[in-house]
C-alpha cells in the first residue's frame, strides 16, 4: 500500500483513497475530426511505457475527488512528486538536483 501525496489536499494519504488513471500529459485534441487516422491512433493507443520515471495520472477518488499528475518510478514504484492537473510536465533533472 503506497502513500500518495494529494496536491489538492496537501496531505500524504494511503493508496486505497486513490485510483490510477493512466499516462499524463495526453491532451484530447481540440478538433479530433481534423486528425489523420494515424494521429488519432497514436492519441488513443500509443503510450510511453517507460522503465523508470513515468508521468501518470491519479485521482483522489475517495478524497477530494481531483485528478492530478505524478512522477513515479516504474521500477521501484516510488513517487518522485505529484502536481496538479494542468501544470506543466516537471523537469526531471531539476527534480533530481533538488533531491540531492
Amino acid at each position: 500500500m503506497l502513500l500518495i501525496h494529494c496536491p489538492y489536499c496537501d496531505e500524504t494519504l494511503p493508496e486505497p483513497e486513490f485510483a490510477y488513471a493512466g499516462e499524463a500529459h495526453i491532451a484530447r485534441p481540440a478538433d479530433p475530426m481534423a486528425l489523420s487516422d494515424e494521429e488519432w491512433r497514436d492519441f488513443l493507443f500509443i503510450r510511453s511505457n517507460p522503465r523508470g520515471n513515468h508521468f501518470e495520472r491519479w485521482r483522489h477518488v475517495n478524497g477530494c475527488g481531483r485528478f492530478f499528475n505524478a512522477v513515479r518510478d516504474t521500477v521501484s514504484d516510488k513517487f518522485a512528486m505529484t502536481y496538479r492537473a494542468g501544470e506543466p510536465r516537471p523537469n526531471l533533472d531539476a527534480l533530481k538536483e533538488a533531491a540531492e
Binding site: 491532451a27 475527488g65 485528478f67 492537473a85 494542468g86
Partner: peptide, 13 residues
C-alpha cells in the same frame, strides 16, 4: 461518473 469527472476536470475545466 469517474469518466465524466475526468473529462470535466482535465479536458474542459
Amino acid at each position: 461518473l469517474n469518466m465524466m469527472e475526468d473529462y470535466l476536470q482535465t479536458e474542459w475545466p
